[in-house]
Design a binder for these strands. Structure first.
Length: 734
DNA sequence: GTTAGGG
DNA sequence: CCCTAAC
């Protein structure tokens, strides 16, 4: 079966159809290909035309590639000119692609400058993703277009990048073939007839310096011929595109897996087993989501006896209770349904983001889990419910906005879902209320470009972060001056008074997220802000009205890197990209410790390894631990401030939170250890002081005691009175 | 301001 | 240890 899909046209449905059809059928494939996802870099014009991405955009992708430490190949027909992405620049690539090891077949070698039809043969048993740069009325948007279910764009390994051109030197586009969740079982090939209109040299393809691509597989030659040659060698040398990926190994997923209980490391393993490749993502939530999605969508799973339920991968046989789950994830639907309700495959978390309202309305049963969730509340009564953090929401909404754009594309292209023209959709994009969440947009003026950013996700409502320093974790070599300046400013201005409340001023986190939503404190950070502003090209820095500059996002997540710095002038973009890369590689700036170092707890520690984590860590002594245990036994776990005041009065450096944390750790330790030996806590040689078993035992006892007492609601009164007593005692002391 | 929990 | 939502 051959399905021709036009990128330009109403292809979404087709793609989706194909994907689904083939995940449920078992068509044999002409070729075995392990890299099932195709990324295409195009720009969507306001009138709906799709034009190839510019070099600038490509560059971002390249930086992404670097960041992801992925290998990159350029493959081209020897006879054709090949755009070479090299250290020198990604520029002038006019590439016409002939073949790619049977993966791609360019059918229109002779295509005129107006049109290029590149026929791609790719396995259709895959998830389709497309990255689209969308330029709508000078509003540069980025879309992640997911034509098949949810697209978790972040974690993909880019394997391949091809550049196509249509004869015009101003025209090029990129096809990225990325390895992703490969369902290699039936590699039926799908033909994509990608019609690219290359007519308008919208932007001059100015040769632009590209970030170093030392890892990639091409030479730095300047001439096309050489490039072509080298890349040709690549192909001829038989280095097919398999490369990075290993196959998913579901044999590692034996029995029942509850993702919620897994550590990051375990999640990583599961991830690997699921997707056949490693990930470096540390975000548990993401990993869980990803894995469960991967599993849910994976034909490997669907053909095996596993199903996904409630964050668990369980054997079908074991699974009888079907409806009374806590409902984090939708059940794997009957196969037959898939075509009609593709989204039912999606985890519920994402379901609301993906499924158009209409579909949901028409299929209310899909909403089972979110509707009457009495059992949910039951389960949650035990623990305090934490709503997702703002950061999470923000990031989610960011992804969502991308998704929504993709969805809208779908809508526009799919007569079933919407009849409005693409154009109007694109224009409305973020003003469409999605699932009750109104996504508003505002137009930021960045670098002279209009960039539409979702307000809702960018506003930081609480106090501005103080860890702006993270912003300066730039490549030291490149950013020496800024670093120095900041240093200076730290020393001279000796930091904002800061209500005197916050003693730990130097909050520089190693986690990208922190940088991510950075906002400058206008009063204190004037200098730095100026600097960055300057670095950004002095282009109308957004007023410090509580909205932040989105340009300053920095993250090691490829996606983030990718989505950054659009609209930043070339020179600065270069810088920005470099910065991002620097971040991604844990380039760290050696901070000098704040001058307050001595007086209190403000110490920043450039950690030997991963990065820059300032901790004023004070190891817990045994006596402290004992005191804590005693305090807990006396006042009860949870009364941390009491314990702090009464038992730790002299330990000024131990906050109640510290106590709480320590107790938590003790608890963990005690639970982890007791089943086994009773010797000295046989933990790994963490360097941490081993906690004597007796203490752990006591911890355990206390914990059990607490556990027995607390669930009883009637005890709250007792607890209340005790607290009162404590308070009285306390006042007596004072 | 404290506490619970996630990271 | 840090952060932040919930209380």
């Amino acid at each position: 079966m051959e399905t021709v899909v036009e990128v330009e046209g109403n292809d979404e449905a087709k793609l989706k159809e194909c994907g689904i059809r083939n995940s449920t059928s078992s068509l044999s494939s002409p070729k075995q290909i392990s890299d099932p996802v195709v990324y295409k870099l195009v720009r969507l014009e306001g009138d709906g035309r799709i034009v190839p991405a510019t070099d600038d955009e490509l560059m971002e992708v390249e930086s992404l590639l670097i960041d992801d430490k992925c290998q990159m190949h350029i493959v081209a027909d020897p006879g054709q000119t090949v755009g070479c992405i090299s250290n020198e620049g990604s520029s002038s690539g006019i590439a016409q692609l002939e073949s790619l090891e049977g993966l791609l077949q360019s059918r229109n070698k002779e295509a005129g400058p107006d049109k290029l039809n590149a026929r791609l043969e790719v396995p259709d048993n895959w998830w389709h993703h497309a990255v689209i740069f969308c330029n709508v009325e000078s509003q540069l948007l980025k879309l992640v277009k997911s034509s098949f279910l949810y697209s978790a764009f972040e974690e993909i390994s880019l394997l391949l990048m091809l550049r196509l051109a249509c004869g015009s030197p101003y025209c090029s586009s990129a096809y990225l073939i990325v390895d992703s969740q490969c369902c290699d079982q039936h590699d039926k090939l799908l033909h994509i007839d990608a019609k690219l209109q290359c007519e308008i040299p919208l932007q001059e393809t100015v040769p632009s310096p590209a970030p170093s691509l030392s890892e990639s597989h091409f030479n730095q030659s300047g001439s096309f011929g050489e490039c072509s040659h080298s890349s040709d060698k690549l192909v001829a040398g038989g280095s097919t595109l398999s490369v990075v990926t290993t196959k998913p190994d579901f044999s590692k997923l034996k029995g029942e897996i509850c993702l919620d209980n897994l550590s990051i490391k375990e999640l990583h393993e599961t991830f690997k087993a699921t997707f056949g490749r490693e990930t470096t993502v540390k975000d548990k939530q993401w990993l869980k989501r990803r894995i469960s999605m991967g599993l849910t969508n994976s034909c490997d799973v669907s053909v095996t006896s596993f199903i996904i339920k409630d964050n668990k991968l369980v054997k079908k046989g074991n699974e009888e209770i079907s409806n009374c789950m806590d409902g984090s994830y939708a059940e794997d639907p009957p196969i037959g349904n898939q075509k009609d309700l593709p989204t039912s495959l999606v985890s519920q978390l994402d379901y609301h983001q993906v499924v158009p309202e209409k579909i949901r309305l028409e299929n209310p049963n899909l909403d089972d889990n979110s509707g009457s969730d009495d059992h949910q509340t039951e389960q949650r009564a035990a623990k305090r419910v934490r709503k997702p953090t703002k950061r999470y929401i923000e990031e989610l909404s960011e992804v969502e906005s991308k998704e929504s754009n993709g969805r809208l594309m779908n809508l526009a292209k799919n007569p079933e879902h919407g009849l409005i023209s693409l154009k109007s959709h694109v224009r409305l994009v973020r003003n469409v209320p999605l699932d009750g969440r109104t996504v508003v947009t505002r137009l930021d003026s960045l670098g002279g470009y209009g960039i539409q950013v979702p307000c809702v996700s960018r506003v930081r409502r609480s106090r501005p972060r103080k860890n702006f320093m993270a912003l300066l974790k730039f490549n030291p070599s490149g950013m020496g001056m800024e670093a120095t300046l900041v240093k200076k400013s730290l020393g001279d201005h000796s930091f904002p008074p800061d209500d005197g409340k916050e003693s730990r001023v130097l909050k520089a986190s190693s986690t990208p997220e922190h940088v991510h939503h950075q906002k400058f404190n206008p009063s204190a950070m004037g200098m730095e802000a100026t600097l960055v502003k300057k670095a950004l090209g002095d282009h109308s820095f957004p007023p410090d009205d509580g909205k932040e500059s989105r340009v300053l996002k920095a993250s090691s997540t490829p996606e983030h890197v990718h989505h950054k710095f659009i609209g930043v002038p070339e020179k600065d973009k270069q810088f920005s990209v470099m910065s991002a890369i620097g971040l991604g590689h844990n380039t760290e700036l050696k901070f000098i410790n704040s001058s307050r170092d001595s007086d209190d707890n403000v110490v920043t520690v450039p950690t030997p390894k991963g990065g820059l984590r300032r901790k004023h860590h004070r190891a817990w002594t045994l006596s402290e631990v004992m005191k804590l245990v005693e305090g807990v036994s006396r006042y009860g776990a949870g009364r941390w401030s009491e314990i702090k005041r009464l038992a730790f009065a002299s330990y000024s450096y131990r906050t109640s939170v510290d106590l709480k944390d320590k107790w938590r750790n003790l608890l963990k330790a005690s639970l982890a250890q007791t089943p086994q030996d009773n010797g000295m806590n046989s933990r790994k040689s963490t360097g941490a002081m081993p906690i004597p078993a007796p203490i752990l035992l006591k911890v355990r006892e206390l914990a059990e005691k607490q556990a027995q007492v607390l669930p009883n609601l009637s005890s709250t009164k007792i607890a209340g009175s005790t607290r009162k007593n404590v308070h009285e005692k306390q006042t007596g002391f004072l």
